[in-house]
Nucleic acid binder design. Structure first.
Length: 895
RNA sequence: GGGCGAAUAGCUCAGCUGGUUCAGAGCGCCUGCCUUACACGCAGGAUGUCGGGGGUUCGAAUCCCUCUUCGCCCACCA
């Protein structure tokens, strides 16, 4: 049907063409589901990568997990939609372009707002969404026809609709508060964007003299430079030490300004000196104290965090760090520095550039979060929202419980402009919030000026579960694909994105956007450090694809990850990280090549396919591999359902490599070659079980499985494994007897191989084997599988009788069957005695401890009957094995 | 300061509801094989006080407590 498989597995040859073919066929569109529109939808929203992003290992993991889930559900017949998009990423993208400008010696201010935004657009258009192309290289089956960008017209409308609606509901407001300010990006940030980091700092104790010269108060601070903006000193109202000072005045050193001493409950008398300097313009807690006591706020810093005109002249223009040094120096010179002790505390850093955050008083827009958080918390408490792993749910709940209002305005140029217009007409000054652009003031008809700020990037991404489907229009897509089902995310963006999507979903759409939140781990290096560009410890997924194939990349990521734990990879040793998965793909390739090559030739009577095989035509090995296949279907399916993707992958790996390749294929060779009858049955069974295995593995290794699957006979030209039906469990395939009997055959083969290796029998040299069993005949299965044993263990004669010779290798199977390989002079009797003795000892120990266990009245009476029964059988088995070996030892004449 | 996770072979990790996967896998290591699907392979082998200590139980890698080490998240004690 198609060209024969290349003799060598080469992912570079197969992957790109297959991906192109999938796309041509439209297989990733939900409309293509085999059951069509009747099928129940299954929706995953891709966390939109930043437009400027390059694929890194974290994207690789996150998107591989999503692809596995989506492919799994697609094969199960769901109308699967994996919706991709990119995020305009306000600060991040603006920073990138600003850095480019800097190389030309320019700043954005040189260009001006409009030209700068044009510049960013052209950059975004030029680089395109590179990352989406990169996701294709790793096999992601997203519906690219629905790809969105958060600055698209549609999504921008959604942003505006949301802003206006929340404003109308009183949930969006403008206010003058302390916010987190990045002096390098020159913008406000949300609390989540200010990353707290434990820092080794200092606690300076500064002496503030009383205005009347009658004494002084010592205050403790970690940021002495802010004292230039102090407008009070606060103490606890019940603090005996300072009671008399309340209401009196301080003469603020360096500034020489009188400030009051106030009493406030927020002061902790046990910390530092128990007295606090109050700087309402530079500290959120001080801001609150300032409000309560009607203190003025003096902002002593510029947006760039240099000392402003509000500071004494000699400090003006100094950077905050220089200002700190100078303030401390002046206190010291004046004899007012009491002490400076080491002090660990958390300092906020800008999540985009790492600059130390400056708490800054300014006018910003906020979203009132409590009313949104309450129902989002309720949906978790009532079990609607399910987190995997469960403990992540508690992180979510804790965050919602302590939620603070969300600062959404950014002093940037790249993003959604805030839809607010201010009337410039004197005497009007009306503020208008509007869904459409305004030219004139709706009140007085005067000229209006739009708010300069843009919205937080996350203000658009928190809407994607519905904005990407056409909302606020009532589109078919919205009706069909909202709400979605599973969200796959890194825990890092649980608060930024996941929790906020849940809130917006409930508020704007009336329903949570997803019910299952799967939060996977982080990709780290062997020192458990997060992979990052700056550390240079990253792994480039595309390089891995090039060298090992996308399938190997995916398999490695999936198998290295159990629920919620990190994936550790060694950037310095790609071979040990990705080699094994590549080897597995190669194994698959060769097994497929072998099976397929044996299907060629003249027409077979088995044209009806595997279904035509009659039960009574099956050999033990056939029944065994079918039963193992059945067990694997159950195991893998359940594992996928429970998000235990690594276990699903491992189950299929074991089946393919350990069962199918190592045993079944080896076992059926004589039949395939015509040396034994039953070739057609073997072909049918091999084909059927391999087909099932390919389908079970397809979500993890889509390329190699497709390449092989399509080549099986009787496949229509347009058939794709990606929409092939998921294997169904079938009770009729269960076969405990076959599992037990073939297990015994495997044991026998293993025993003989072990003896051969022990005594260095040449690989080509056949041996004779004598098998017997006390008080009866060996299991009939061993007799029936004589050919299997002979082939797999290189046995020339397999006799079932009592051994007549004395010298050789001995072994015993778990059912007490005695195995003897006569080797004559080839073996050293002493050595064999040693082998037997250590085995006898081992079994003896098992027997002893088992006897003790069963001799324990408590155990026998309290453990469940079936457990006791099993333990009895174990004991009997070990006893029998031991007796057999003891007898063998005597026979050999061991000392 | 609060919350959470991890510790099992030299390395990276499985081991779920205590007892049939109970001490495992892959890599690495040792021995022997280019056996006509695969040397990216085949066969065989060695290696563990399941982090320490205590407890619950007839029975603990598994449940509880505690200690140690590492990591993560949250936090306006200046």
């Amino acid at each position: 049907m198609t060209e024969p498989l290349a003799p060598q597995y080469d992912p570079a040859q197969i992957e790109a063409p297959l991906y192109a073919w999938w796309q041509d066929q439209g297989l990733f569109r939900p409309e293509h589901a085999p059951a069509g529109l009747a099928a129940e939808p299954y929706v995953i929203m891709m966390p939109p990568p930043n437009v400027t992003a390059e694929l890194h290992a974290g994207h690789g993991l996150n998107n591989t997990v999503q692809d596995v889930l989506v492919r799994f559900e697609r094969m199960r017949g769901r109308r699967a939609l994996w919706l991709p998009g990119t995020d305009h990423a306000g600060i991040a993208t603006q920073n990138v372009v600003e850095r480019l400008l800097a190389k030309e010696g320019m700043t954005r201010f040189d260009l001006g707002r409009e030209a700068f935004v044009e510049r960013v657009w052209s950059y975004v258009h030029r680089t395109g969404a590179t990352i989406l192309e990169q996701l294709k290289a790793i096999g992601c089956s997203a519906d690219w026809s629905r790809t969105y960008f958060t600055l698209d017209e549609g999504l921008s409308r959604a942003v505006r609709e949301t802003f206006v609606r929340l404003y109308e509901e009183g949930l969006v407001y403008r206010g003058h508060y302390i916010i987190n300010w990045c002096p390098r990006c020159l913008t406000a940030l949300s609390n989540e964007e200010a990353e707290k980091e434990e820092t080794e700092g200092r606690l300076w104790h500064l002496r503030y003299p009383l205005a009347d010269g009658s004494g002084s108060v010592v205050v403790a601070t970690t940021r002495p430079e802010t004292m230039l903006g102090d407008t009070a000193v606060a103490v606890h109202p019940d603090d005996e030490r300072y009671r008399d000072l309340i209401g009196r005045e301080i003469r603020l050193p360096l500034v020489d300004r009188p400030i009051p001493i106030v009493a406030d409950d927020a002061v902790d008398p046990s910390f530092g000196s128990g007295a606090v300097k109050v700087t309402p313009a530079h500290d959120p807690a001080d801001f609150e104290i300032g409000r309560r006591h009607h203190l003025p706020s003096i902002d002593v810093m510029t947006p760039e965090a240099r000392m402003s005109l509000a500071a004494p002249e000699r400090f003006q223009g100094l950077d905050r760090a220089e200002a700190r040094r100078q303030v401390v120096a002046e206190f010291e010179a004046a004899g007012l520095l009491v002490k400076a002790e080491p002090h660990r505390h958390a300092v906020g850093h800008c999540y985009r550039c790492g600059t130390v955050i400056e708490p800054r008083l300014s006018e910003q827009w906020f979203v009132k979060m409590e009313p949104l958080a309450r129902p989002a918390l309720a949906r978790y408490r009532d079990g609607t929202l399910q987190f995997i792993p469960e403990r992540r749910g508690e992180d979510y709940a804790r965050w919602l419980e302590g939620i603070r209002d969300w600062c959404i305005s950014r002093q940037l140029w790249w993003g959604h402009r805030i839809p607010v217009w201010y009337c410039e007409a004197p005497g009007c000054g009306r503020t208008s919030v509007s869904r459409t652009d305004l030219e004139r003031c709706p009140g007085c008809g005067g000229a209006v000026r739009q708010d300069d700020d843009v919205l937080d990037t996350w203000f658009s991404s928190w809407l994607v579960p519905f904005s990407s489907l056409g909302w606020p229009d009532r589109t078919d897509d919205l009706r069909t694909y909202y709400p979605g089902h599973t969200l796959v995310s890194a825990p890092e963006i649980l608060f930024f994105w996941v929790a906020r999507m849940i809130m917006s979903g409930i508020h704007m759409m009336g329903e949570v956007p997803y019910t299952r939140m799967y939060l996977h781990g982080t990709v780290r290096d062997t020192q458990h450090r997060k992979m990052s560009k700056s550390l240079g410890n990253g792994i480039d997924p595309l390089q891995v694809v090039e060298r090992y194939g996308a399938d190997a990349l995916r398999y490695s990521l999936i198998s290295g990850m159990s629920v919620g734990t990190d994936v550790i990879l060694d950037p310095n040793d790609l071979e040990s990280s990705f080699g094994p998965a590549r080897n597995f793909a190669n194994k698959l390739w060769n097994a497929g090549r072998f099976i397929l090559s044996n299907l060629e030739g003249p027409p077979r009577p088995l044209a009806g396919g595997p279904a035509a095989v009659r039960r009574d035509e099956l050999t033990l090995a056939d029944r065994w591999i079918i039963a193992r296949c059945e067990a694997t279907v159950r195991e893998a399916t359940e594992a996928y359902e429970r998000f235990r993707l690594n276990e699903a992958a491992a189950a299929v790996y074991r089946f393919i490599w350990s069962d199918l390749a190592d045993w079944y294929i080896e076992q059926i060779k004589p039949r395939l070659y015509g040396d034994l009858p039953g070739g057609d049955v073997a072909r049918a069974v091999a084909t059927q079980t391999f087909d099932v295995a390919l389908r079970l593995l397809h979500p993890v290794m889509p390329f190699v499985t497709e390449a092989l699957w399509r080549r099986f006979p009787a496949r229509p030209a347009d058939a794709s494994i990606s929409v092939a039906p998921w294997p169904r469990p079938d009770h009729r395939a269960e076969d405990a007897a076959a599992l037990r009997e073939f297990g015994l055959v495997q044991e026998l083969v293993g025993a003989i191989r072990g003896i051969r290796a022990e005594y260095g029998v040449q690989p080509g040299q056949p041996v004779r084997v004598v098998v017997s069993r006390d008080g009866g005949a060996p299991d009939p299965a061993l007799g029936r599988e004589r050919a299997t044993v002979s082939r797999l263990a290189k046995v020339s004669e397999l006799a079932f009788r009592e051994p007549t010779e004395r010298v050789g290798g001995h072994a015993v199977l778990s059912d007490g069957t005695s195995v003897f390989v006569p080797l004559g002079d080839a073996i050293d009797v002493g050595r064999e005695c040693g082998r037997l003795s250590s085995e006898v000892d081992r079994l003896g120990q098992l027997v002893t401890s088992q006897e003790k266990k069963l001799g324990n009245v408590q155990f026998v009476s309290r453990a469940p009957a079936d457990v006791v029964d099993r333990e009895r059988q174990k004991l009997a088995g070990w006893r029998e094995q031991r007796e057999v070996l003891v007898r063998k030892r005597e026979l050999l004449g061991c000392g």
